[in-house]
Nucleic acid binder design. Sequence first.
DNA 1: TCTGGGGTCCTAGGACCC
DNA 2: TCTGGGGTCCTAGGACCC
Length: 397
Amino acid sequence: MTARLIMHVDLDAFFASIEQHDHPEYQGRPLVVGAQPGQRGVVATCSYEARQFGVRSAMPISEAARRLPPEAVYVRPRMARYLGVSQEIMSILTQVSPLVEPVSVDEAYLDISGMQRLIGTPETIGRRTKQLIQEATGLTVSVGIGPNRLIAKLASDFRKPDGLTFVPVQRVQAFLAPLPLTVLRGVGKKTAPLLQRQGLRSVADVRGLTLLELRKLLGDLAGSRIYDQARGIASDLILPGRARKSISKETTFAEDVTDPDTLRDTLRWAAQEVGHIARQEALKGHCVTLKIRFRGFETHTRSWTLSVPTSADQTIFRQAWEGYQGESWQGRPVRLIGLGLSGWESGATSLPLQGELFTDETNPPSDEREERLYQTLDEVSDKFGRSSVGFGLQRKK
DNA sequence: TCTGGGGTCCTAGGACCC
DNA sequence: TCTGGGGTCCTAGGACCC
């Protein structure tokens, strides 16, 4: 019998902490990473000083600005910088344990089973991890340790920032019982009210329902999952190197766009970004998905399965653009447009040769057309503001 | 309040095949 | 003339997560 020990590492207010670290003048001030006030957009992350005013991730920037005092700072995300720090931290984590599964730029699970004899108690392993990251980057993390992924994650959420919580197996039930049911994975804006209408508030309350009752309420699969989670039953499997399933690029315009040229050029830009990443990762996809959003957040997707998998910008672009033209959407003001690539050819691991990239093209992009695209994007950007064309542009500028 | 961007997973209906 | 059951793939939408 080998009980697993799982550690969850969560970087505190990651983007905001990096900005405060890189700009000492921002330290101690409410800081928002995301859109600029007056723009369309939301808070990506904010500093703990900003959280004291009730500002949260995903909050519309307009509301954040209403809540925050004038000395608050608003910065655009610098993803390349955050990604660099993230990679540095992930590599530190592999020194702690070889079994590291990053789940996003600011989170990872580690399997630390059987390491007690080498390093010490779970708390010692946690403290050592925090110390290594602090010394290398100056950033704090919250660490949770428990018998499975769910408990480790909830433990790292338990005390923030700079927290360390260990929940041994025999304390799992007592730890879970008083927590609000919204901490369970898969319980969000729709499912929470559904459960609350049954008079349920805490995880202990959910435990009062039978498996049958939960399945009836939420469906077989979701019901079973909530039932298990309420009892602390969850996966303890750590999978390093999980493969991605899709690549996508989308942008919300600063103002709704009707001009077909702008839509076409934006799709071309998105196809270039997606194709670039696909080629970088030696992936070719069968499925192109077009995403479009109109006024009132009315969102639609259309997808097409290609007979030949591709990573070529032009193929991706053309499918999405022709797909758009085939719909009865022309003339409708567009809030967001983007596209994605998925459905990788099986066993796609070989690197494409440079000359292979456009082999299925009769009309590969010329330098001149590239130039024109970027000019157009600059015009869009000048007209509507930087957010309207995403971060892809900054690479070229 | 007026809602980013990049993802994953699930559902459900229909096509198609055996 | 009515019609089973299972499996897989495709497509659209939506919930949820960070």
